[in-house]
Deep mutational scan, measured.
Amino acid sequence: NLYFQGLKYMVPGARVTRGLDWKWRDQDGSPQGEGTVTGELHNGWIDVTWDAGGSNSYRMGAEGKFDLKLAP
């Protein structure tokens, strides 16, 4: 699974964008943008601060869902 392989790169400072299971509307800005991981992966959740200004926790394994992917 590509998403599980990418988890080791989901570290503080990593750049991310919305992924396969995104369901959080425009939390990442409008139009959709990139963000920066600000915390360690914990119980399948990870913290992100978006360039647009907001921050929140997103699923990276929790509930079998992956809200994020590494930015290109």
Rank of each mutant, 00 (worst) to 15 (best):
G6L: 15
Q27V: 06
D67G: 01
G64E: 07
W45D: 00
D51K: 04
A62W: 12
S55T: 15
T17H: 07
S30Y: 12
G39H: 07
W50A: 00
E63G: 12
P31G: 08
L41Y: 10
K69T: 12
K23G: 07
K65T: 04
G39E: 05
L68C: 03
D47N: 13
K69E: 13
R59G: 03
G33K: 07
M10V: 09
N1V: 10
I46N: 00
A62C: 08
T38P: 00
G6A: 15
D47C: 15
E40H: 14
A14Y: 03
N56L: 05
S55F: 11
E63R: 06
A14W: 03
Y9R: 08
S57E: 08
D28L: 04
G13A: 03
G35P: 01
Y3G: 15
G35W: 02
T17W: 05
Q32Y: 12
F66P: 01
R59D: 02
K65C: 15
W45V: 03
G54C: 15
V48T: 00
G6E: 15
L70V: 08
Y58W: 02
G44A: 02
P72G: 12
K8D: 14
D47S: 12
W24N: 06
T17A: 11
S30H: 12
G54N: 10
Y3F: 14
P31A: 09
S57M: 12
T38W: 05
E40C: 15
R59K: 01
K23M: 11
A14L: 07
S57C: 15
Y9E: 12
L20E: 11
Q32M: 12
L2H: 15
G33P: 05
V16Y: 02
R15C: 04
K65I: 05
R15Q: 01
M10C: 09
V11Y: 09
G29R: 05
L20S: 10
H42I: 13
G6M: 15
W50C: 00
D67L: 02
D51S: 03
E34Y: 14
L70T: 06
V37L: 07
M10S: 03
A52P: 01
S30L: 11
W45T: 02
K23N: 09
S57Q: 12
L7V: 11
V16H: 01
L20R: 14
K69A: 14
G53Q: 02
K23A: 11
L7G: 08
S57N: 09
Q27F: 06
I46F: 01
L68W: 01
M60E: 02
G61W: 03
W24S: 08
A62I: 05
S30G: 15
M60I: 05
D28G: 06
R18H: 05
I46Y: 02
T17L: 12
V37K: 00
K69M: 14
W50L: 01
D51I: 03
Y3R: 11
G39A: 09
K8N: 10
G13I: 02
R15V: 03
A71F: 06
D21F: 04
R18M: 08
G39N: 09
D51H: 03
L2Y: 11
M10E: 05
D67S: 01
R15W: 06
D51E: 04
V11K: 12
M10A: 05
G35H: 01
F66I: 06
V16F: 02
A71S: 12
G44N: 02
M60D: 01
L41R: 07
A71L: 12
L41K: 05
K8M: 11
G53D: 03
D21C: 06
D47Q: 15
P12T: 10
Y3K: 12
K23L: 07
Y58L: 03
S30N: 14
G53F: 02
L2A: 15
V48E: 00
P12I: 13
T49C: 15
L41G: 06
G33V: 05
N56M: 07
Q5W: 13
R18Q: 06
Q5N: 11
A71R: 08
E63Q: 12
R18I: 08
G61C: 04
A62V: 06
S30D: 14
D28V: 05
D21E: 04
V16G: 02
N43E: 10
V37E: 01
G19H: 05
Q5P: 15
G39V: 05
K23F: 07
A71I: 13
D51T: 03
W22K: 04
S30M: 12
T36I: 08
A14M: 09
N43S: 09
D28N: 13
A14P: 01
R18D: 00
K65D: 02
D26A: 07
G64H: 06
G64L: 07
T49E: 12
S57W: 10
Q27T: 06
D21I: 02
W22Y: 07
F4T: 11
W24D: 07
Y9N: 08
V11R: 09
Q5C: 15
S30I: 14
G6I: 15
L7P: 07
N1C: 15
D26Y: 06
T38N: 07
H42M: 11
K23C: 15
N56G: 15
Y58N: 02
W24F: 06
D26E: 12
K23D: 11
T38Y: 06
A52Q: 10
G35A: 01
L20M: 12
G39C: 12
